[in-house]
Design a protein around this nucleic acid. Sequence first.
DNA 1: TACACGTGGGA
DNA 2: TTCCCAAGTGT
Length: 287
Amino acid sequence: MPTRPILDWYAEHQRDLPWRTPDATPWSILVSEIMLQQTPVVRVLPVWEEWMRRWPAPEALAKEPSGEAVRAWGRLGYPRRALRLHACATAIVAEHGGEVPDDHAELLALPGIGAYTAAAVASFAFRQRHAVLDTNVRRVLARMRSGEEYPPKAQTVAELRLAESLLPDDAPTAATWAVAVMELGALICTARAPRCADCPVISQCRWYLDGKPAYDGPARKGQSYAGTDRQCRGRLLAVLRDAPGPVEKPVLDVVWADSVQRERALDTLIADGLVDPLDDGRYALPR
DNA sequence: TACACGTGGGA
DNA sequence: TTCCCAAGTGT
């Protein structure tokens, strides 16, 4: 895999994203990475701006009730991420003097930060040399090297080894390379209707050279949503997010007809720490 | 390992 | 309209 063409392409075509500017901090980058998990850039942008205005450093967020993080999360989806980001801020203040750690293992130990995000923050915020393997990169590698339209359902050791083997030796260059490949996957080598005509490495893409054969692996699991507990949880939490304070039970009851499912969903929200059942019978976002 | 976990937009 | 997908993590 040629490194140069992709670095050159990135230099010319990268998007101007606020967490990529020179004044972006490790904290602002960390927040962006959590928000971007399974969530499109356009939806993250306004929420990230608001978070950075309110909580420019971990200490500011750590002082707030976790419910404020959930409220400010808005409709980004997967609101447990908001809770984990709040827990992240708390841990960073308590264990790292308020500074986002630059060590990969320490990042990995923070709540809500897994293999991808730890590598991404270490790479993007601290310019370290790590294989940053997200869905974009996995797709690019699958097409270029394996000739497959899509990567395997679950990440393999081989994919990680390949990504590591492609890393430029120089750390800062490796960091730019990591974001460049991701960007290529996000803008050109997209899941549907890839823009192969604009690809800087089309001549080395095995999938393209093979005539772009259609995916023939096992069916990729579609995610149902309507009628699920997830949708029910979303409805219930939306009520609390949009209310100025605690709400009475009947206010929650009206958003979902199936009482068995509704109670189950509410129980799991409480178990997750997203909803706080008050002593007076009302419900609120957590303190 | 497989599944749960939100939401909205494009094809 | 329905399906598929978007910078994953935790259990």
